[in-house]
C-alpha cells in the first residue's frame, strides 16, 4: 500500500500536465531535488552542513563537558575516551569547544550572508535595471573593491574598529559584497528586457515596484548559489581573523582562535591545534560541495 502511495505521489510530482501552480512548483522543486541527489558529493556536502546546524542547535546535549569549564588538573590531556579530542592548556575539553564553536561559525556565516546578500542584490539590481551612468558608477565601485586585497583590508578594519566578533563580521561583509552585485547585475540585465517587465511598465508600475517585486525575486536563486559557494571563503577568512586574535575574543570557543591557542604546543600536544583545524576543513569542504551541487542542479534546468 505504502509503495503504491509513494508511486502516485511521484507521478503527481512528475506530471507533464500539472493541474495547479502549486503542483507545477512542487514538481519543479522535486525534479531539482532529484537532480541534486544524483550528485553524491553534493549530498555529502548537505549532510555536513546539516550536521553543523544540528551540532549548533543541540550543542548542550552533544558536548560532554562545559566548553568554558577550566580544569587545571586536566590540562593538555591527550586523546582518550574521556576527552575525544584531548584538552587544551586550561584543561578545557576540546571536543566540547569544537561543538560549541559551530555556533560561532554559523553565526558568522549567517550574519555575513544576511548583510552581504541583500546589499549586493539591491546594488546589482539597481545597476542592472537603470543601466547608463548609475550602472557605470556602481560597477566602477564594485571593480575597485574587487581589486582590493580582502584579507589585509579586513585586518586593517578590525585593527581600527577594535578586535571582536561583531567587528570581524562587519569587516568581512564590507569587503565581500562585490561578487554578489556582479551576479545580480548580470541577471537583471537579462530580466530587464523581458516582455513581462515591459508589461509591468505599461501598467504604470514604478521602477521601485518593478525592481522589488519583479527583478529581485528572480535574482535570488543565483545569489543563493553564489553565497553557498562563498560561505567556505567566509569561514576561512573568519578563522584567519580569529587566528590572529582579531575575531571572537577568549574564552569564546572559536575554531581559528583555538588553533592559535594550540600553536605554542604544536610539537608536543599536537591535538590542541589539529582538531579545530580539521573542523574548519570539514565544514568548509561541506559548503564547497553543497555549493557545487546546488549550482549544478540549478544550472542543468
Amino acid at each position: 500500500m505504502r509503495a503504491a502511495t509513494s508511486q502516485s505521489w511521484r507521478d503527481w510530482l512528475l506530471s507533464e500536465a500539472p493541474q495547479s501552480r502549486a503542483q507545477a512548483r512542487a514538481g519543479q522543486a522535486y525534479r531539482r531535488w532529484r537532480g541534486f541527489t544524483e550528485n553524491w558529493l553534493g549530498v555529502v556536502g548537505l549532510v555536513i552542513v546539516l550536521t553543523l546546524i544540528g551540532m549548533a542547535i543541540f550543542a548542550p546535549w552533544i558536548a560532554p563537558y562545559d566548553p568554558l569549564a577550566q580544569n587545571l588538573s586536566q590540562r593538555l590531556q591527550p586523546v582518550s575516551w574521556q576527552h575525544w579530542c584531548g584538552t587544551d592548556s586550561l584543561g578545557r575539553d576540546i571536543f566540547s569547544r569544537i561543538v560549541y564553536g559551530s555556533r560561532v561559525t554559523l553565526l558568522i556565516v549567517g550574519l555575513v550572508v544576511v548583510t552581504v546578500g541583500p546589499l549586493g542584490l539591491i546594488l546589482g539590481c539597481v545597476a542592472g535595471y537603470y543601466g547608463g551612468a548609475v550602472d557605470r558608477i556602481l560597477m566602477r565601485v564594485t571593480d575597485i573593491v574587487l581589486a582590493f586585497p580582502k584579507l589585509i583590508l579586513a585586518l586593517a578594519f578590525v585593527a581600527a574598529l577594535g578586535p571582536g566578533l561583531e567587528n570581524a563580521i562587519i569587516a568581512i561583509a564590507i569587503t565581500s559584497w562585490p561578487p554578489y552585485a556582479r551576479v545580480a547585475r548580470t541577471e537583471t540585465m537579462v530580466i530587464r528586457n523581458s516582455d513581462y517587465i515591459a508589461a509591468a511598465k505599461l501598467q504604470g508600475a514604478s521602477s521601485l515596484r518593478i525592481i522589488m517585486l519583479h527583478v529581485v525575486p528572480l535574482c535570488v536563486p543565483s545569489v543563493i548559489v553564489r553565497s553557498t559557494l562563498d560561505m567556505a571563503g567566509v569561514i576561512l577568512t573568519a578563522a584567519g581573523l580569529g587566528f590572529l586574535g582579531l575575531g571572537a575574543q577568549p574564552p569564546t570557543p572559536e575554531w581559528g582562535a583555538m588553533i592559535a591557542a594550540g600553536r605554542e604546543q604544536i610539537f608536543d600536544q599536537w591535538w590542541v591545534a589539529t582538531f579545530p583545524g580539521l573542523a574548519i576543513c570539514i565544514v568548509a569542504l561541506g559548503f564547497n560541495l553543497l555549493g557545487d551541487g546546488v549550482r549544478d542542479a540549478l544550472d542543468a534546468r
Binding site: A232, L236, I259, I266, F267, A273, C281, A284, L289
Partner: peptide
C-alpha cells in the same frame, strides 16, 4: 576542493608538525 577548504595557517602548522 581542498585548496578552497583548508585554512592556510593550519596547513602550515600541520606541515611543520
Amino acid at each position: 576542493l581542498f585548496g578552497y577548504s583548508i585554512p592556510v595557517f593550519w596547513l602550515g602548522l600541520m606541515g611543520l608538525l
